[in-house]
Design a protein around this nucleic acid. Structure first.
Lengths: 240, 240
DNA sequence: CGGATGGTTGAGTAGCCTCAAAGTATGTGG
DNA sequence: CCACATACTTTGAGGCTACTCAACCATCCG
């Protein structure tokens, strides 16, 4: 019984090389279940700025993010915007047990998505406790991140906010911090970073140059960042 | 089989009148399971300002909040503090699948707690999918709240923040808004409200008097609030 | 080449914070 | 039950951080 899983014999072709099968939600599914789900599944790509979910719209599908990055946004009537979450592969995208979305979702870095109908997944959820467990763990992780970000938004200065953002991204790019230095591409524009940090673009830009002048970061062509010393950057966040 | 549940025959005495059995986590447990859990359970009271969880300490118990209010806090090394959540009965208190707490927990309004060891609940979690489902729903609710609060922290003015806070509390006191007006006691001091809103006490105080002078609220003896017109207050939040 | 998009920099301003002092609840011991 | 100490709250004056408005620069693309 177990060997089916191990040997992939029942695993649908579309799922074989899929990242979501390992670290993602689908890791909890058996070959049979993957077969069933994959019948209703559609893979697709979406490029930067395309809107995946419009706030307060009804949503009938869930997705796994296979690559790229998605930002979750909230909008005020007068246009003020706040990014309330950033999701990467192999995150699960969607709000179980609720048809109407509390937030918008927009592509930040071109994504590949694997989408399936809500009801199919939700029926699997009742049959397969392991799936629910995976989901619970992901939601708990998101809750931890959201609360950490509340500290950033509520109590940090502009410079600390930007340093925290850079730390967040660099941690995500390379969770095992072997060396002191990291290099990466920013997944967000200045305007998006501002919306994530509760600042204006101008302030974000000024803090970038301030950090650059202090030698904490190097910037090449707007989005390419080099952090020579992670610890020094982390000190600039004021965080524990 | 079902009747046991319905007739409470197997339900431990301590659980019979318990709020957590209805809207809380324990609603997913059978009489037998309640029996088992109640053997390891201890009810206790804790009064304002007592610290339930110290940030980054190991936690070996979970609790249900039976009455009162608890604030979840994060602290920066230099003393800056942010409240990242407010919990009321019958909320569940604890972070499953993690021994070390990401945040502190402190009593805001005298609480009664029902506590039990982590491992007992976690073993029930694997046996009883319904329990995990309840937990998942609670965590999703907390995530929704956290994200809503990120909008408040990141994008609202001081006055909008205070109005949002009053709206949050009044919604919690009386979810069915029958009339236009509500009356309630604030569960937090000015200093705590400041830590929840990412402001200083002085700014909070000034916004309270500003709202009072605009006729949006009446204040009696610091903690007692009257909102004559909920809608008018909600308009002051700038929110959708 | 001209327009569009995204980013940086500067000058001036407003909102919130800091520091300070006075006012008002709350609770305790005499 | 009052007197007093303490904790909490309000109010004021002044300063600083981040915002607003505006101009300029760089890159990309038709």
């Amino acid at each position: 019984m177990e060997r089916k899983d191990i040997h992939n014999s029942d695993v649908p072709i579309v799922c074989r090389a899929c990242e979501a099968r390992h670290k993602g939600i689908c890791g909890a599914l058996s070959g049979d279940e993957l077969q069933r789900l994959s019948k209703h599944t559609s893979k697709r790509v979406a490029s930067r700025k395309s809107e995946l979910i419009h706030e307060e719209d009804e949503v009938h599908t869930y997705s796994n993010i296979l690559s790229g990055a998605v930002k979750l946004t909230k909008l005020m009537p007068d246009g003020r915007q706040q990014i309330v979450g950033l999701q990467f592969a192999p995150d699960f995208l969607g709000r179980p047990f609720m048809s109407e979305s509390n937030f918008g979702a927009e592509v930040a870095v071109d994504v590949r998505l694997c989408s399936f109908p809500k009801d199919v997944l939700e029926s699997m959820l009742v049959e397969n406790p392991g799936l629910e467990n995976r989901l619970l763990r992901q939601v708990l992780k998101e809750l931890d991140e959201a609360r950490q970000w509340m500290l950033v938004l509520g109590r940090m200065t502009a410079k600390e906010k930007v340093a925290s953002f850079l730390g967040l991204i660099s941690d995500h790019i390379d969770p095992e911090h072997e060396g002191d230095s990291v290099t990466f591409e920013l997944p967000l524009s200045r305007a998006e970073i501002a919306d994530y940090l509760g600042l204006t673009i101008e302030t974000v830009s000024r803090q970038f140059t301030a950090l650059r002048k202090e030698g904490l970061i190097e910037i090449e062509g707007n989005r390419h960042i080099v952090v020579p010393d992670r610890e020094a950057l982390k000190d600039a966040t004021g965080s524990p």
